[in-house]
Amino acid sequence: MTKNGQTILSVRDLRVRAGERTILEGVSLEVRAGEVHAIMGPNGSGKSTLTGALAGRPGLEVLSGTATYLGRDLLALPPEERARAGLFLAFQYPVEIPGVNNVYLLKASLNALRRHRGEPELDAFEFLTLVRARLARMQMDEGLLNRGVNEGFSGGEKKRNEILQMSLLEPTLALLDETDSGLDIDALKVVAEGVNALRSPERAIVIVTHYQRLLDYVVPDHVHVLARGRIVRSGGGELARELERRGYDWLRDGTAAA
Protein backbone atom coordinates (compact mmCIF):
# COMPACT_ATOMS: atom_id res chain seq x y z
CA MET A 1 0.00 0.00 0.00
CA THR A 2 1.32 3.40 -0.96
CA LYS A 3 1.54 6.21 1.58
CA ASN A 4 0.59 9.81 1.14
CA GLY A 5 3.51 11.66 -0.44
CA GLN A 6 5.31 8.57 -1.68
CA THR A 7 6.45 8.81 -5.28
CA ILE A 8 4.22 6.69 -7.51
CA LEU A 9 5.47 7.73 -10.92
CA SER A 10 8.74 9.30 -11.88
CA VAL A 11 9.31 10.14 -15.53
CA ARG A 12 12.74 11.40 -16.57
CA ASP A 13 13.55 12.98 -19.89
CA LEU A 14 11.26 10.67 -21.86
CA ARG A 15 11.62 10.76 -25.63
CA VAL A 16 9.09 8.77 -27.67
CA ARG A 17 8.66 8.22 -31.37
CA ALA A 18 5.50 7.20 -33.23
CA GLY A 19 6.29 6.04 -36.75
CA GLU A 20 8.72 8.51 -38.30
CA ARG A 21 7.98 11.33 -35.91
CA THR A 22 9.46 12.01 -32.52
CA ILE A 23 6.49 13.20 -30.45
CA LEU A 24 7.89 13.50 -26.92
CA GLU A 25 11.14 15.44 -26.82
CA GLY A 26 12.11 14.90 -23.20
CA VAL A 27 9.30 14.87 -20.65
CA SER A 28 9.92 14.75 -16.93
CA LEU A 29 7.17 14.36 -14.36
CA GLU A 30 6.95 13.42 -10.71
CA VAL A 31 3.62 12.15 -9.33
CA ARG A 32 3.15 11.39 -5.63
CA ALA A 33 0.44 9.51 -3.77
CA GLY A 34 -2.59 11.68 -3.01
CA GLU A 35 -1.96 14.04 -5.92
CA VAL A 36 -4.04 14.96 -8.93
CA HIS A 37 -2.07 16.24 -11.90
CA ALA A 38 -3.48 17.83 -15.00
CA ILE A 39 -1.52 17.82 -18.22
CA MET A 40 -2.88 20.37 -20.63
CA GLY A 41 -1.84 21.32 -24.07
CA PRO A 42 -2.96 22.03 -27.59
CA ASN A 43 -3.78 19.30 -30.07
CA GLY A 44 -0.70 17.49 -31.30
CA SER A 45 1.41 18.45 -28.29
CA GLY A 46 1.99 14.81 -27.32
CA LYS A 47 -0.54 14.33 -24.48
CA SER A 48 -1.94 11.03 -25.72
CA THR A 49 1.52 9.79 -26.65
CA LEU A 50 2.60 10.33 -23.05
CA THR A 51 -0.28 8.35 -21.54
CA GLY A 52 0.04 5.72 -24.30
CA ALA A 53 3.75 5.25 -23.64
CA LEU A 54 3.09 4.90 -19.91
CA ALA A 55 0.35 2.28 -20.50
CA GLY A 56 2.37 0.37 -23.10
CA ARG A 57 0.54 1.18 -26.31
CA PRO A 58 2.07 -0.72 -29.25
CA GLY A 59 3.57 1.36 -32.03
CA LEU A 60 5.25 3.82 -29.70
CA GLU A 61 9.01 3.57 -29.45
CA VAL A 62 10.81 4.89 -26.40
CA LEU A 63 14.04 6.47 -27.65
CA SER A 64 15.49 7.45 -24.30
CA GLY A 65 14.59 8.37 -20.76
CA THR A 66 13.00 6.40 -17.95
CA ALA A 67 9.63 5.89 -16.28
CA THR A 68 9.71 4.42 -12.81
CA TYR A 69 6.45 3.21 -11.26
CA LEU A 70 6.54 2.34 -7.56
CA GLY A 71 10.26 1.72 -7.92
CA ARG A 72 9.93 -0.56 -10.97
CA ASP A 73 11.02 0.10 -14.53
CA LEU A 74 7.57 0.68 -16.01
CA LEU A 75 8.73 0.67 -19.61
CA ALA A 76 10.09 -2.89 -19.30
CA LEU A 77 6.66 -4.30 -18.40
CA PRO A 78 4.07 -5.56 -20.90
CA PRO A 79 0.78 -3.63 -20.77
CA GLU A 80 -1.06 -6.29 -18.75
CA GLU A 81 1.57 -6.27 -16.02
CA ARG A 82 1.35 -2.50 -15.78
CA ALA A 83 -2.42 -2.89 -15.35
CA ARG A 84 -2.03 -5.61 -12.74
CA ALA A 85 0.41 -3.42 -10.85
CA GLY A 86 -2.32 -0.79 -10.54
CA LEU A 87 -1.92 1.45 -13.56
CA PHE A 88 -5.11 2.30 -15.42
CA LEU A 89 -5.54 4.15 -18.69
CA ALA A 90 -8.95 5.58 -19.51
CA PHE A 91 -8.90 5.67 -23.31
CA GLN A 92 -9.61 8.78 -25.30
CA TYR A 93 -11.34 6.55 -27.86
CA PRO A 94 -12.56 3.42 -26.01
CA VAL A 95 -12.54 0.61 -28.53
CA GLU A 96 -15.68 -1.36 -29.37
CA ILE A 97 -15.35 -5.13 -28.97
CA PRO A 98 -18.51 -6.84 -30.21
CA GLY A 99 -18.75 -10.41 -28.96
CA VAL A 100 -16.90 -9.78 -25.70
CA ASN A 101 -19.46 -9.17 -23.03
CA ASN A 102 -18.96 -5.99 -20.99
CA VAL A 103 -19.61 -7.67 -17.65
CA TYR A 104 -17.35 -10.56 -18.65
CA LEU A 105 -14.47 -8.17 -19.27
CA LEU A 106 -15.09 -6.38 -15.96
CA LYS A 107 -14.96 -9.66 -14.10
CA ALA A 108 -11.96 -11.10 -15.97
CA SER A 109 -10.12 -7.85 -15.45
CA LEU A 110 -10.91 -7.50 -11.77
CA ASN A 111 -9.99 -11.12 -11.11
CA ALA A 112 -6.71 -10.78 -13.04
CA LEU A 113 -5.79 -7.89 -10.75
CA ARG A 114 -6.93 -9.67 -7.60
CA ARG A 115 -4.97 -12.80 -8.47
CA HIS A 116 -1.91 -10.63 -9.01
CA ARG A 117 -2.36 -9.11 -5.55
CA GLY A 118 -2.83 -12.53 -4.00
CA GLU A 119 -6.49 -11.86 -3.20
CA PRO A 120 -9.24 -14.45 -3.79
CA GLU A 121 -11.44 -14.01 -6.83
CA LEU A 122 -14.89 -12.59 -6.14
CA ASP A 123 -17.80 -14.95 -6.42
CA ALA A 124 -20.69 -14.08 -8.73
CA PHE A 125 -22.79 -12.53 -5.97
CA GLU A 126 -20.04 -10.36 -4.51
CA PHE A 127 -19.04 -9.26 -7.97
CA LEU A 128 -22.55 -8.26 -9.06
CA THR A 129 -23.17 -6.38 -5.84
CA LEU A 130 -20.01 -4.40 -6.40
CA VAL A 131 -20.74 -3.72 -10.07
CA ARG A 132 -24.28 -2.58 -9.36
CA ALA A 133 -23.08 -0.08 -6.78
CA ARG A 134 -20.56 1.36 -9.22
CA LEU A 135 -23.10 1.44 -12.05
CA ALA A 136 -25.44 3.46 -9.90
CA ARG A 137 -22.72 5.96 -9.14
CA MET A 138 -22.00 6.35 -12.86
CA GLN A 139 -25.76 6.60 -13.57
CA MET A 140 -25.41 3.82 -16.12
CA ASP A 141 -28.14 1.49 -17.25
CA GLU A 142 -27.65 -2.09 -16.08
CA GLY A 143 -28.47 -3.23 -19.62
CA LEU A 144 -25.08 -1.96 -20.74
CA LEU A 145 -23.45 -4.77 -18.75
CA ASN A 146 -24.69 -7.43 -21.11
CA ARG A 147 -23.79 -5.64 -24.30
CA GLY A 148 -20.51 -6.14 -26.14
CA VAL A 149 -17.72 -3.98 -24.70
CA ASN A 150 -18.59 -0.41 -25.78
CA GLU A 151 -20.61 -1.86 -28.65
CA GLY A 152 -23.01 0.73 -29.96
CA PHE A 153 -22.40 2.91 -26.87
CA SER A 154 -22.78 6.65 -27.33
CA GLY A 155 -19.66 8.75 -26.84
CA GLY A 156 -20.77 9.62 -23.31
CA GLU A 157 -21.57 6.01 -22.43
CA LYS A 158 -18.13 4.92 -23.56
CA LYS A 159 -16.46 7.48 -21.32
CA ARG A 160 -18.66 6.49 -18.37
CA ASN A 161 -17.79 2.88 -19.04
CA GLU A 162 -14.10 3.74 -18.77
CA ILE A 163 -14.68 5.38 -15.41
CA LEU A 164 -16.84 2.43 -14.34
CA GLN A 165 -13.95 0.09 -15.08
CA MET A 166 -11.61 2.41 -13.23
CA SER A 167 -13.80 2.58 -10.16
CA LEU A 168 -14.00 -1.20 -10.08
CA LEU A 169 -10.29 -1.79 -10.56
CA GLU A 170 -9.31 0.96 -8.07
CA PRO A 171 -5.95 1.75 -9.64
CA THR A 172 -2.99 3.22 -7.80
CA LEU A 173 -2.29 5.43 -10.79
CA ALA A 174 -5.10 6.47 -13.12
CA LEU A 175 -4.31 8.12 -16.44
CA LEU A 176 -7.33 9.83 -17.97
CA ASP A 177 -6.80 10.62 -21.62
CA GLU A 178 -9.20 13.39 -22.72
CA THR A 179 -11.96 11.73 -20.73
CA ASP A 180 -13.91 15.00 -20.83
CA SER A 181 -13.98 15.37 -24.61
CA GLY A 182 -17.41 14.93 -26.15
CA LEU A 183 -19.27 14.98 -22.82
CA ASP A 184 -22.24 17.19 -22.12
CA ILE A 185 -22.31 19.00 -18.80
CA ASP A 186 -24.39 16.37 -16.98
CA ALA A 187 -22.15 13.52 -18.14
CA LEU A 188 -19.11 15.60 -17.24
CA LYS A 189 -20.37 15.95 -13.66
CA VAL A 190 -21.02 12.20 -13.40
CA VAL A 191 -17.56 11.41 -14.71
CA ALA A 192 -16.02 13.96 -12.35
CA GLU A 193 -17.86 12.37 -9.44
CA GLY A 194 -16.46 8.99 -10.43
CA VAL A 195 -12.96 10.41 -10.54
CA ASN A 196 -13.32 12.27 -7.24
CA ALA A 197 -14.57 9.07 -5.58
CA LEU A 198 -11.25 7.50 -6.45
CA ARG A 199 -9.23 10.34 -4.97
CA SER A 200 -7.41 9.15 -1.90
CA PRO A 201 -4.10 9.55 -0.11
CA GLU A 202 -2.92 6.20 -1.56
CA ARG A 203 -3.64 6.96 -5.23
CA ALA A 204 -2.67 9.43 -7.87
CA ILE A 205 -4.57 10.66 -10.90
CA VAL A 206 -3.17 12.22 -14.06
CA ILE A 207 -5.77 13.99 -16.16
CA VAL A 208 -4.84 14.80 -19.73
CA THR A 209 -7.09 17.42 -21.27
CA HIS A 210 -7.31 20.15 -23.82
CA TYR A 211 -9.83 22.17 -21.84
CA GLN A 212 -10.10 23.38 -18.32
CA ARG A 213 -13.74 22.49 -17.74
CA LEU A 214 -13.23 19.04 -16.15
CA LEU A 215 -10.82 20.76 -13.77
CA ASP A 216 -13.71 22.84 -12.40
CA TYR A 217 -15.03 19.60 -10.93
CA VAL A 218 -11.83 17.66 -10.32
CA VAL A 219 -9.52 20.27 -8.88
CA PRO A 220 -5.88 19.43 -9.61
CA ASP A 221 -2.94 19.93 -7.27
CA HIS A 222 -0.53 20.42 -10.16
CA VAL A 223 -1.00 21.61 -13.72
CA HIS A 224 1.54 21.11 -16.50
CA VAL A 225 1.51 22.50 -19.99
CA LEU A 226 2.76 20.21 -22.71
CA ALA A 227 3.78 21.85 -25.97
CA ARG A 228 5.74 20.37 -28.84
CA GLY A 229 6.73 17.33 -26.81
CA ARG A 230 7.97 19.13 -23.71
CA ILE A 231 6.48 20.33 -20.45
CA VAL A 232 6.95 24.04 -20.87
CA ARG A 233 5.33 25.20 -17.70
CA SER A 234 4.13 23.77 -14.40
CA GLY A 235 2.08 25.38 -11.68
CA GLY A 236 -0.92 25.00 -9.42
CA GLY A 237 -4.63 25.02 -10.23
CA GLU A 238 -4.52 28.71 -11.14
CA LEU A 239 -2.47 27.84 -14.25
CA ALA A 240 -5.43 25.97 -15.71
CA ARG A 241 -7.65 29.01 -15.34
CA GLU A 242 -5.01 31.21 -16.89
CA LEU A 243 -4.81 28.85 -19.88
CA GLU A 244 -8.56 28.97 -20.21
CA ARG A 245 -8.43 32.76 -20.30
CA ARG A 246 -5.37 33.28 -22.47
CA GLY A 247 -5.25 30.11 -24.63
CA TYR A 248 -2.00 28.35 -25.42
CA ASP A 249 -0.49 30.83 -27.85
CA TRP A 250 1.37 32.81 -25.21
CA LEU A 251 3.29 29.61 -24.40
CA ARG A 252 4.18 28.69 -27.97
CA ASP A 253 7.65 30.01 -27.57
CA GLY A 254 8.29 27.38 -24.98
CA THR A 255 9.62 29.20 -21.98
CA ALA A 256 7.98 32.56 -22.64
CA ALA A 257 7.68 34.59 -19.49
CA ALA A 258 4.26 34.89 -17.89
Partner: peptide, 22 residues
Protein backbone atom coordinates in the same frame (compact mmCIF):
# COMPACT_ATOMS: atom_id res chain seq x y z
CA UNK B 1 -8.58 -4.23 -29.34
CA UNK B 2 -5.73 -6.43 -28.14
CA UNK B 3 -4.11 -3.45 -26.41
CA UNK B 4 -7.40 -2.46 -24.80
CA UNK B 5 -7.84 -5.91 -23.25
CA UNK B 6 -4.20 -6.08 -22.15
CA UNK B 7 -4.51 -2.63 -20.57
CA UNK B 8 -7.28 -4.17 -18.46
CA UNK B 9 -4.94 -6.85 -17.13
CA UNK B 10 -5.63 -9.72 -19.56
CA UNK B 11 -2.52 -11.36 -20.98
CA UNK B 12 -1.85 -11.28 -24.72
CA UNK B 13 -2.76 -14.92 -25.36
CA UNK B 14 -6.06 -14.56 -23.51
CA UNK B 15 -6.82 -11.30 -25.31
CA UNK B 16 -6.29 -12.91 -28.70
CA UNK B 17 -8.31 -15.97 -27.74
CA UNK B 18 -11.23 -13.84 -26.54
CA UNK B 19 -11.21 -11.73 -29.67
CA UNK B 20 -11.13 -14.77 -31.91
CA UNK B 21 -14.19 -16.27 -30.26
CA UNK B 22 -15.82 -12.85 -30.29
Amino acid sequence: QIFYLRSRGLDAVTARALLTVA
